[in-house]
Design a protein around this nucleic acid. Sequence first.
RNA 1: CGGAACGUGGCGCAGCCUGGUAGCGCACCUGCUUUGGGAGCAGGGGGUCGCGGGUUCAAAUCCCGCCGUUCCGACCA
Length: 555
Amino acid sequence: MRMSQLFLPTERQPPADAEALSHKLMVRAGLVRQLGSGLWTWLPAGWRTHQRVVQLIREEIDAIGGQEMLMPVLQPAELWKRSGRYQAIGDELFRLHDRRDADMVLAMTHEEAVTFHAAQSVRSYRDLPMILYHFQIKERDEPRPRAGVLRTREFIMKDSYTFDRDAEGLAASYQLHREAYARIYDRAGLEWFECRSDVGMMGGTMAHEYMAPCAAGEDDVVLGAGGYSANLEIATADAQPVAPLSDEIAGELHTPGQTTIEAVAGGLGVPAGNLLKAFPVIAEERGLVLAFVRGDHRIGDIKLTNALGQTWRPANESELPGPAGFLGPKDGVDMVFDEAIAPGRYVVGANAPDHHAVFAYEGGETLDIRLVEPGDSIGGAPVRIEPAIEIGNIFQLGTRYSVPLGLTFSDEHGKEHPVFMGSYGIGPARIAAAAVEQYGDERGIAWPKSIAPFDVEVVALGKPGTPEQEAAAGLYRQLQAAGFSTLLDDRASGTGEKFADAELLGAPLRLTVGKRSLESGIAEAQLRRGQVDQEGGVPLATAAEAVQALWPTIP
RNA sequence: CGGAACGUGGCGCAGCCUGGUAGCGCACCUGCUUUGGGAGCAGGGGGUCGCGGGUUCAAAUCCCGCCGUUCCGACCA
């Protein structure tokens, strides 16, 4: 591609409202443009990267036996009513009506559709196992789109679905995807890790998510010794111990107006860990439950849900067993205690205004309900908590969709069973953005070579028609013929602008042809990652061979 | 959903408080010069000042309403 012909609107300055590095760089480099909140257009160069990521994913899913297809985005709401998600999902699901006033939805994922088709056709155990997938637009009315293409309302996702006769088969299909996903992220050149995760709205029994650490990450991930990695939402670690409460503090404590942990701990001159924090909730079945964590810890909402085994909401003022800010253990109240609370004496609310008391904790119903904190440890080694973006997720759905949508098969004895399903998603846009985040620098993007919009950028110095531009064009033709996707900067622009744009766009290898090259017969070569000059450059006469030799050394 | 901002040529901004000729940098067009790190000189084009209403002789500017966008938090595959 000749840059003089390419629709590549680069900008010197990032959009004023951009925060994330990938947002700034992808806009500046002319890869994407915004159409509305959470709605992004992929311009030609950006789309090349997107397509390369798609192709890489396609190859790996095909390799585990996936069959590519395509399902509609616009769907009858009926299917979603049958699965229960029409009612269960809130405003995030786009709902609309067709001209006959039938309820329709814009699909945010495709479990319902694929299960519908499988239910139509799968009859026998002989039809299983099966892997179906597609690349299709997803529509989600996000409450808060942000950071360029990192969180959008419309995006393309590769979603695959596996169909097996039992949990064992599902586990095998799940494992196939884990291996394929590892290959995909490795080939995309990302730093990544796999985490156990919550199943969320997808339902089902087991889930992993794939995270790419970067500054713009929306999730926090806990990394520990022995390869432990889990989303902070569900992570577990050993708490830092806290010194026992001083014996001098005992009995009723007058704590006027001290309704926060900080105020009480500060007033008594003790660490927050000597207090217990009471969190009153109304659980779906249990009703009022007082959940306690150490004063220096925080309740994890998802951990509490999972530990209780039921949904809950914070209690209203009128439902509290005592005055707000002074809640503590109380006879007759349903109580649970976090596992990190060691037996011992703690300052707790006295269930009376302006008073706290000392409580001797000796045990009770203990659950793991607190969030991991900096300073916690796993296997004796301190954990790291890092921001990361989610670049994929996989779910063991079990029979969550097959039962309501009637997807069954007959076994060897003619007996009907529900099919065990799995669902597996990857967002190519996030892989691209994660790569920008992880490898971008102050000058621009430094693509991994597997997903760069162009393999090589040839910078032709001088004006169009000069001998150096002619030489650069010859180099360009050689590289194209050798199979390298090459961008030739054949514009009339000044030298600095050409170099700056090359660094912004981020092709892994840059070759420069100027007047010097005419005398030496050498094009200067520089790797974008780290801006490393290649000793000796690339001979104009044998450029294809030289680049081929260099290529395997490029990240 | 809570909090905070912003909306003026393609991008980044000033002008608004104190009403009166829409302005700057970059980009764009023409010419000449320049060409190894975002060039110089000269000339030129492009803006319903988000939308609607109100006040006023006069509104980018003041008032009211609406729309849009972003950031922080909540939420979130």
